[in-house]
Design a protein around this nucleic acid. Structure first.
Lengths: 212, 212, 212, 212
DNA sequence: CATGAATGAGGTTTCATTCAT
DNA sequence: TATGAATGAAACCTCATTCAT
């Protein structure tokens, strides 16, 4: 799959009835399960439907095609991550820069960890599903939240440019990905979190000094 | 494809006649071409063979299966990256810490950029080809080179732990990936390179201070 | 094909809708047709599907692979043979030994003859399909039926051991195979049948005398 | 493979030079080895050549195609069987009928047993190689030897018809095949041999009485 | 709405055979 | 003669998707 357009991946219908909602939920859960137990290349629509306890036909009632299914799961996950980080940003307003960074980084690491399984599963399908495009959206969203948070920093007055925020985000994402794919232990994650805080703090400090 | 083992991807036969060396080369070049022009999911063994100007049968004489083919290309690329960074490490011995970091980061960014096309193409096949395992190997190799370089730093006496180096590497990789997948402009890359140097320098400084 | 295990040859799905029952029947009929008209080595799954008027995909919905398809046909045939011989055994209870033998032999020869075409076709695929294992099962079944019949013989009190029955069965099978593969004429078959009765009668008499 | 003609299976050239003879021998031995260790369906010409220590090209210098190779091995084996039984016939001239039968049967069972491995291997390829046709030839040869032997029987004056001999042979073959494919133990084979003698003796006696 | 049987294009892989070296 | 690289037809099998029931 090489198309990168985001359109045409939307679920086919917005579930309005209770039953539909349940079904959609079941299907998306099943998708993750199949991804985890069978791997990306043995994820078939029939298998997902089976796992969800519905027929393939039903699956296609809610998702126009396989990619849209994976896309939806991916999107859900990224939304959750975004929401969590946004909340952390809210919460950190008016604090000192380093504290802000700490909260954001910890929030990010923790959400990813919480659903390490989904994260790992999604890395495998990302290329087939327009991963980069979705990630771009997420980055935009987080950049905005972080940027606006930084403006309230109690100790620094200059906000870094978009660029620095993006770099920080992608560095964080890379570090997490590496750890998740390696199947790091909880202890490792704790250490990683700590170091990642350090990394982001020192970079942001440097970047802002430079930007000034 | 979900297996992650690295073994059993080795090329099938070592070319003994001159003819076959040419063939192998043609096939691996063709693989990259097809990856670039058709995308990961339209890469078929038949297409690769066709592009290489040989028959499928010939392809299978040198690679036991499709994955081994992609694996070989992936491996080549990572080897090239590793070699380049290792050279940079050699070159930076006995210099000051920040200069070391600069050289390493710039070397890394530059190699990836040079073959931006291949890099992007490989991101797409990585999950199908044991990407994480291969990356792990590469990280080990680079960690060693960087660690030993750092010991010779003229201005700092404490070497950071493996952990910090790994984190730096994965952060760098994440940043590059993001930029490459976004199709960043040369100007962007220049800026990125600069910032990534900053990021790594400030993190390493902080990490070593902390470790002390 | 060299595996000989019998398991894992079972049809893949049990038809629940009326439509599929028809399909399954059509496929197994088509298999025999193709076997007869094209020969064992030109039997391809695509050809069978075509002959059955369905698509390959449909074939694979009911049989997990080519072997299972042939296996099923083989099994059907052997079941038919077994049933026929068992009936003959029932029918011959309480008669004299030589009459018993006659009925069993004639029943066997007649069933095989009736479907001489299938028999010959199956000889060709037997090795690829776990033939020996299936035959073993059949032998066990027939041995039991014959053994229990012999116990009721009106003129002889001693039952021969399993061994003698097995030998008789394999000798019969060998004779039939030879005649079928040679494409013997009906006249030949009549003579053969007569002689085979003689052979079995005299052997069984001798074996029972010896066993005594 | 469905052709049944015997022509066109002959080895391509009659080995005249010493080296060729050695090579041909090596290839045919290798064929059996591959048959035994890999099974009929994983017997490839390349594999056989490899095992024989020559290149595929060389193999094709001596055999025009794969079938001719298998055919030759089959033929060798049957020739050996025929020779052995013919010798037994020679040896049994002028003896009593039952003794004659004993010698023939024992000779047959023993040769087959001696190379049980080859026998089993050949059952697997027989259908692909014109087995029935070859067997027919063998039967003709043996029928002749046995028929002429029987004429010298010291105690019976009437020779049975061809038919009875053929039946006896095919019964014997069937019994042996069954035992060999089942992987019977040496003890089983001894018992089988004994019973097979009995079977043939009693049948021949009966057949001759009837023919009279 | 749900079902699941049917579709069939298309992908991977094998292997007998040839022929330039 | 021997070699073994190259060939390519052809086989098996999968799975996203549709549509009659």
């Amino acid at each position: 799959m090489s198309t990168n357009t985001i359109t045409a991946f939307e679920p086919r219908k917005t579930p309005v009835q209770a039953r539909s909602t349940v079904t959609v939920k079941a299907i998306s859960e099943a998708t993750i399960q199949v991804l985890l137990t069978h791997g990306a290349d043995r994820l078939t629509t029939t298998r997902v439907a089976g796992r969800a306890g519905v027929s393939v036909g039903t699956l296609y009632q809610y998702y126009p095609n396989k990619r849209s299914l994976l896309f939806a799961v991916f999107e859900d996950h990224l939304n959750k991550v975004s929401r969590t980080v946004e909340l952390a940003c809210e919460d950190a307003r008016d604090k000192a820069l380093s504290e802000m960074i700490r909260q954001v980084v910890e929030a990010y690491v923790d959400v990813k960890m919480q659903r390490a399984d989904i994260s790992v599963a999604l890395y495998k399908v990302a290329p087939d599903v327009g991963g980069p495009a979705l990630v771009k959206q997420t980055v935009q969203r987080l950049r905005k939240a972080i940027g606006s948070m930084l403006l309230t920093a109690s100790d620094v007055k200059l906000s870094p440019d978009k660029f620095a925020i993006d770099l920080m985000l992608s560095a964080m994402a890379g570090a997490m990905r590496s750890a998740l794919e390696a199947g790091a232990s909880p202890a490792m994650f704790r250490k990683m979190r700590e170091h990642l805080v350090l990394l982001c703090q020192s970079y942001m400090a440097a970047a802002m000094a430079k930007g000034a």
